[in-house]
Nucleic acid binder design. Structure first.
Lengths: 86, 86
DNA sequence: TAACTATTTAGCTAATTAGTTAAACAAAGT
DNA sequence: ACTTTGTTTAACTAATTAGCTAAATAGTTA
């Protein structure tokens, strides 16, 4: 669970998630949206994958990334439950 | 908003929040729950304060910290709304 | 198999972060 | 005023992180 919050701590990674919210995208397509280098994006994707916030599927030459909404929602809302007033 | 996720990214800070969930506590009381030094805790508290996740009130010799549930909930749930399926 | 494209890995650097101890500051009591 | 107690600030260090470029890997196409 720590990994999820760590992953969400970086603005680039949050922006990647919001790109993937709309639709799946290849690594290169994601990289296009940022000023930073492709290897840097690749590393961010790796961290998101590690946190299970995204998953990747090989499709020919491309790696298609998709967001894992379930993990995102369950982790964050599970955490937030700790802070419910009762 | 970034500040909130950055603040939540650290396990010590999440644990501080969960201590403050039960009741307000002084800086020293918070520090007692951890192995690390008081100055280290003080810095964590500063980051949480910066993110407006906690607030501090002077009470004589003590600084009493309380959690700001509103900021925590609104920020996180506001962020999660971006990921609602529609 | 050679060339091309997409992506990742490796090796490096600069910046940030979480921790340390020592010193400073603030409030209270003697 | 001096001491004690609680907390923060300063100065430093070690570890981590986010970025870079160059090289390697993997898949496609000619």
């Amino acid at each position: 669970m720590g990994g999820v919050f760590k992953a969400l701590g970086d603005p680039t990674r949050r922006e990647i998630l919001s790109l993937l919210r709309d639709r799946d995208r290849s690594a290169g397509e994601i990289a296009e949206h940022f000023e930073i280098s492709k290897p840097a994006i690749s590393k961010h994707l790796d961290i998101l994958k590690e946190a299970e916030l995204v998953s990747a599927e090989k499709q020919g030459l491309y790696r298609i990334y998709s967001i894992n909404l379930t993990v995102l929602q369950e982790t964050v809302s599970g955490f937030m439950d700790l802070f419910e007033k009762e």
